[in-house]
Each structure stands twice: as structure tokens, then as C-alpha cells.
């Protein structure tokens, strides 16, 4: 092969490396990298004072707090129930298991706006669930609780699908060994089975959290969108854009993007750690 010594790739008998990688890189740059660079360029143009201006606005702070706080809570709930669902789907056999398993992917495939109006209809005071909760004094739709419900919906498949394959790979012999050595079933679950799942659960949590923070479509229909109460950061980006406040929109977007990237970075660290510690990843 040509230029072996300096080549970036190992020699291979297969053709098409230059074409496929070149096309992939060009397309990635055109669709993703250059547009994101434009955002960062714009953000740099705002300057620190501009950022302080936008982020000092109590309404912006409240929206960021709402978004991150509720996304955190939703990701925690989705991770816990996601672990349970993944466990049940991998370990137990029951009727309609395949259909239940397929249903987990629904939030991937169902458009967010459709989910949003459906949740609003369900949890409105006269909806199927809302009318049951109303006598208890519990209002979900058009309150922060509505945001929470929408984000759990959106986050759930991330939590389930990240943990599920790892549960499938657990070596049953470890559990048998634990049982042989006299552990009760509860002991072997909590001391042998669950600890190696922690990195996968955390990865699922970060994915669920990142997705929830940015979620827009399903939330705005159930949130009520009251400033300082149930207004999320992505909605504020849209509002700023509609007011032609490009600097404001860019500043909020940059904060959201920065936190997503920190999340991605954490996932990569976690996966590297899991591979080193546990020999799978």
C-alpha cells in the first residue's frame, strides 16, 4: 500500500477507505460541525459581559433551573424504573413480553408533539388521569409536574436500553457461586448482580438527563409555560428568537450545549472506567 510509514490507517486489502471516510467527514462537517461552530462563533461575539447580561436575567435563571432540576428528577425516576423494566424484560418470561419490550421504544418513534398533546389530554383536570388526581388536590397538566411526566416519558427508553444488554451479559455462574457459598438471593442480587450494573445505569442516566434537558415538543403542551414557574430553557430560546434577540437565544443555547458536552465527556469517562474495571463496556 502507498505511504505505509506515515499513513493514518493500518494497511488493508479492502478498497474504498478514502472515499467513504472522506464523504463521511465532509458530510459530518457540513451538517453538524460547521453549524455548531457558527453557534460558538456567535457566542464568542457576545462576550462575557453579554453572557452575564443574559444569564443574570432572573427569568433565564429560573428557566435553566426548571429545565435542569426537573430533567434531573425525571432522569432519576427513569433510571430506577428503567433498571426494573430492563431486569424484568431480560430475566423473566411472561405473556406479551415481546410486545412490552417493543413498547419501550415508543418514545423514540412517537413524535414529541404527539406525546405532548396526548399527555396534556390525559393529565388535564378533565382527562382520564387528571380527573382521578383532581380530588386529591393534585394538578399535573400545566404545572411543573406536567414537565416531569413528559420528561420521564422521553427519558425512559434511554435508561432501559442502556442497561438491558448489560443485564443480558451477566454471567449466571457468579450468582450460582454466591448461592453455593451461602448467600441468600437478596444478598447475591444486591452484592453480586447489581454493582457491575452501576456504570450502565449511570450512562443511561446521563443520556436520559441530556435528552430531557433539551426536550421541547412534548413539554410545551403540558407545561403551562408560566415564566418563573413552568417555563423551560428551550422554550426561552424560541421566545428570544421570536423577539429577534439573537444574542439572548445564543447565550442560553450555549449554556445548554456546554452542559450536554460535559455530559458526553462524562459518559466516555464512565465507559472507559467500566471497561477497565469490569472488563466489559
Amino acid at each position: 500500500m502507498r505511504a505505509a510509514g506515515l499513513s493514518l490507517k493500518e494497511p488493508s486489502a479492502l478498497p474504498g477507505f478514502g472515499l467513504s471516510l472522506g464523504y463521511a467527514l465532509a458530510y459530518l462537517s457540513a451538517i453538524v460541525l460547521i453549524p455548531l461552530a457558527a453557534l460558538i462563533y456567535r457566542a464568542a461575539g457576545i462576550g462575557l459581559a453579554g453572557f452575564a447580561d443574559v444569564l443574570g436575567d432572573p427569568r433565564v435563571l429560573a428557566a435553566l433551573r426548571t429545565s435542569f432540576g426537573i430533567a434531573f428528577a425525571a432522569a432519576v425516576v427513569a433510571s430506577l424504573f428503567g433498571l426494573l423494566v430492563a431486569w424484568v424484560l431480560t430475566r423473566y418470561r411472561f405473556p406479551a413480553r415481546r410486545i412490552v419490550d417493543a413498547a419501550v421504544d415508543l418514545p423514540f418513534a412517537l413524535p414529541t408533539a404527539v406525546a405532548g398533546i396526548a399527555l396534556a389530554a390525559l393529565y388535564a383536570p378533565n382527562g382520564w388521569i387528571g380527573s382521578l388526581l383532581a380530588p386529591l388536590g393534585l394538578r399535573v397538566a400545566f404545572t411543573p409536574l406536567g414537565i416531569f411526566v413528559a420528561l420521564v416519558f422521553v427519558a425512559l427508553p434511554f435508561a432501559v436500553r442502556t442497561v438491558q444488554p448489560v443485564i443480558g451479559e451477566i454471567d449466571r455462574e457468579l450468582e450460582e457461586a454466591a448461592a453455593t457459598l451461602g448467600a441468600t438471593r437478596a444478598e447475591s442480587v444486591f452484592k453480586v448482580v447489581l454493582p457491575p450494573l452501576v456504570p450502565a445505569v449511570l450512562t443511561g442516566f446521563v443520556l436520559a438527563f441530556a435528552r430531557s434537558v433539551g426536550e421541547y415538543g412534548s413539554v410545551i403542551f403540558v407545561a403551562g409555560n408560566l415564566p418563573f414557574v413552568s417555563e423551560i430553557a428551550p422554550l426561552l430560546v424560541v421566545i428570544k428568537l421570536e423577539e429577534y434577540d439573537y444574542a439572548g437565544a445564543t447565550a442560553i443555547a450555549t449554556v445548554m450545549l456546554g452542559i450536554s458536552f460535559v455530559g458526553l465527556f462524562l459518559i466516555n469517562l464512565l465507559e472507559a472506567y467500566a471497561r477497565r474495571r469490569l472488563g466489559h463496556g
Binding site: K9, S12, L14, F17, L33, N268
Partner: peptide
């Protein structure tokens, strides 16, 4: 089908749009 330097970075970059809010994607 090939081994080359920077492959894992490329895989990470392909996933990038998943961690960008759709609203931010439009804004960009």
C-alpha cells in the same frame, strides 16, 4: 472495515446531534 487514528473521536462526533437540544439545532 478499517483501522485508523481518531476513529473513536469520529464515533463520538456522529453521536453529537443526540446531545444537542432540537431547539438549539434549529437555532444553529
Amino acid at each position: 472495515k478499517f483501522e485508523f487514528r481518531g476513529k473513536s473521536l469520529l464515533v463520538t462526533l456522529i453521536d453529537l446531534p443526540f446531545s444537542v437540544s432540537p431547539v438549539v439545532a434549529g437555532l444553529v
